[in-house]
Every structure is written in structure tokens, then in C-alpha cells.
């Protein structure tokens, strides 16, 4: 054992894990934690993610202890043809177990869950010879921030702390600059609705759109486009008067009551935030509370003054 962890040991699976993490690619890593091949690993990537640069260099190398002969190749025997998978790396000890865990790992990854599952030695259901920890490494959630205003910089910083991939978008090129938002992953000079036309289909429940522009010219088309996506959170900044005015304009633009009900406007929790940083925290706290279903007082459901 000691020799296995000695300096200079090759670590093909870990190297791939590190590379995929740095690329923010989705994958799952299964590890036998109890059973004859404890420590054996299978890395599973979903369909459509293969071919990311920098992740291909470690395949076909030697594998983990106790699993000699079968591992280290993409799509090892027994995992070929499994639906929805582009490739695996490593093995849990036999093709039967690999096949079943690969399927389960894809399911766990899609649901963003990590946990222990048990199997028979060759992957049989309802047996408990082998325990496998399946960890999902989902892609980071995305936050699109429309409007390169004062509050945007603070929201970028807080969102990065929480692990979001952050895009700042504003049609005004003097405001939407890398210098102003050094922590943003992308700064895009364009109309928000045009950006949403490009990336909207990728947005899901874990993602967020924050509209901070305060300007109906930009807000209304951005909100209409955001409502056409599956994004989990749509927050819109503005005073209560701006909000009332915006509701009228959104209705005129054809947004129905169900659409209006999806909006968090004014966005954020009612914590009396004053500074851009406090406001940013009230926004991300609202996103967390929405995900967890906790009861907290949101600005969109209260009527008092916004600032403390």
C-alpha cells in the first residue's frame, strides 16, 4: 500500500478528474468503498461532453489496484453501447458491476446527487456485497447578470464565492468591460435578449438570470426572453415604482400572469440591504431559499421600503 502512494506513482484517473474539474466539465466518479476491490474507480462522462481539450491525454494508461487487465481504455468491454455515455475510465473490478454503476452514475449526475449505493459482486440489484460511492461533479450553475451597473460588481464577487459561472451582459460597451468585472467568467457587449437567444436553451433550474439594468428598454426584452427559458430564478432590480411600471409594460409585451409570477421583482430578500454588497447577498440568499423551499420574506412579497 505504502508503495502505491509513493511519489512518482502515475494517477491517470485523478489527472483526468483534475483536468475535467478545471474545464468545468460534468462527470461522475464511482469508488468501491467496501468489497473485494475497495478503492477501485470508474469515471463516467455523459454524452456530448467528450472531446474537451486537455482531458484526453491520460487514457489507455495503467489502472488501479486489483483490477488488472481491463481498465484504462475508453468504453471498456461491458460498457460499450451503454446508452447516453461517451466514455468511461477505470473499472470497479468486473464488466457487470461497471455497466450497472455507469448507468446509475449517469442518473445521479443528472440529478446532481452524490451518495453510496450497494450491489452484488457483479452489479446485481438488491444485494450488498459491494458498496460504491458515486460522486456527481455537475457543471457549475450559471448566472447571467444583465446590466453593468454598480451593483453588478458586488453580485459577480458574491456569485463567484458560491461557485457560479458568471456572465455580465450590457449593450453599452463603455460599461461592459473586463476591467470593471475582473472576476466575471465572461463579459459580453450585446443586448440581453440576443445573448439569451444564444444560450437560453442551456439554462436550467440551478441557473439564475438577474436583471439589474433598471431600464425598460433593456429590461422588458430581457425578461421576455428569460421567461422563454427553463431558468430557475429570474430576479429583476428596481424600485417599487419601477416594478409597477414594468409590470404594465411586460403585460403589454404579452407576458401572462404565470410569467409575471415567475419573476422575483424587486429581487432579493427583505433584509434591509443598503450597499451593493449587502444587496448581492440578499439576492443570492433569495436564490438559495428558493432552491431549498425555505420560508423567508422576499422583497417581491413584501411592501415596505427596500433599503434598511
Amino acid at each position: 500500500m505504502a508503495a502505491d502512494s509513493a511519489p512518482g506513482t502515475t494517477t491517470p484517473i485523478f489527472d483526468t478528474v483534475a483536468s475535467l474539474l478545471r474545464d468545468e466539465s460534468a462527470f461522475a466518479l464511482a469508488t468501491v468503498v467496501e468489497g473485494p476491490a475497495a478503492g477501485a474507480k470508474l469515471l463516467v462522462r455523459p454524452e456530448g461532453t467528450q472531446g474537451t481539450e486537455g482531458t484526453q491525454g491520460t487514457e489507455g494508461t495503467e489502472g488501479t489496484e486489483g483490477t488488472e487487465g481491463t481498465q484504462g481504455t475508453e468504453g471498456t468491454e461491458g460498457t460499450e453501447g451503454t446508452e447516453g455515455t461517451q466514455g468511461t475510465l477505470g473499472t470497479l473490478g468486473n464488466a457487470g458491476l461497471d455497466r450497472v454503476v455507469e448507468r446509475d452514475a449517469l442518473g445521479e449526475l443528472a440529478a446532481g446527487r452524490s451518495g453510496v449505493r450497494h450491489y452484488g459482486e457483479h452489479g446485481e440489484a438488491r444485494e450488498d456485497d459491494v458498496r460504491v460511492f458515486i460522486e456527481s461533479f455537475a457543471q457549475p450553475p450559471r448566472m447571467l447578470i444583465f446590466g453593468a451597473v454598480d451593483f453588478t460588481g458586488a453580485l459577480v464577487r458574491i456569485a463567484k464565492v458560491l461557485g457560479y459561472r458568471v456572465t455580465v451582459c450590457d449593450a453599452r460597451e463603455v460599461f461592459a468591460t473586463r476591467q470593471r468585472f475582473p472576476l466575471a467568467d465572461d463579459v459580453v457587449v450585446d443586448w440581453p435578449n440576443r445573448l439569451l437567444d444564444q444560450v437560453g436553451a442551456e439554462l436550467g433550474q440551478r441557473d439564475a438570470v438577474c436583471v439589474l439594468t433598471h431600464d425598460n428598454k433593456f429590461d422588458v426584452p430581457a425578461i421576455v426572453s428569460a421567461l422563454a427559458t427553463e431558468v430557475g430564478y429570474i430576479g429583476v432590480m428596481g424600485s417599487r415604482r419601477t416594478h409597477e411600471n414594468r409590470l404594465v409594460r411586460l403585460s403589454e409585451a404579452g407576458v401572462d400572469d404565470a410569467g409575471l409570477a415567475r419573476l422575483r421583482s424587486p429581487l432579493g430578500l427583505d433584509i434591509g440591504a443598503r450597499t451593493p454588497e449587502e444587496t448581492a447577498i440578499s439576492i443570492v440568499a433569495e436564490i438559495i431559499a428558493l432552491r431549498t423551499g425555505r420560508s423567508v420574506r422576499a422583497l417581491s412579497s413584501s411592501s415596505g421600503p427596500i433599503h434598511g
Binding site: S5, A6, G115, V116, E135
Partner: peptide
């Protein structure tokens, strides 16, 4: 630097705990 490394990972949690599996 040539150091050996061990990894400790939370694989399961019962009841209340501060860190999730992973």
C-alpha cells in the same frame, strides 16, 4: 514536491452535519 497524499471524502451523512457527501 514529491509528497504522498491521502484523500478523505464524506460519503454519507446521517442526521445533521455541516458538509455534504463529496
Amino acid at each position: 514536491l514529491g509528497r504522498s497524499v491521502a484523500l478523505a471524502r464524506v460519503i454519507d451523512l446521517e442526521g445533521s452535519g455541516p458538509r455534504m457527501p463529496g
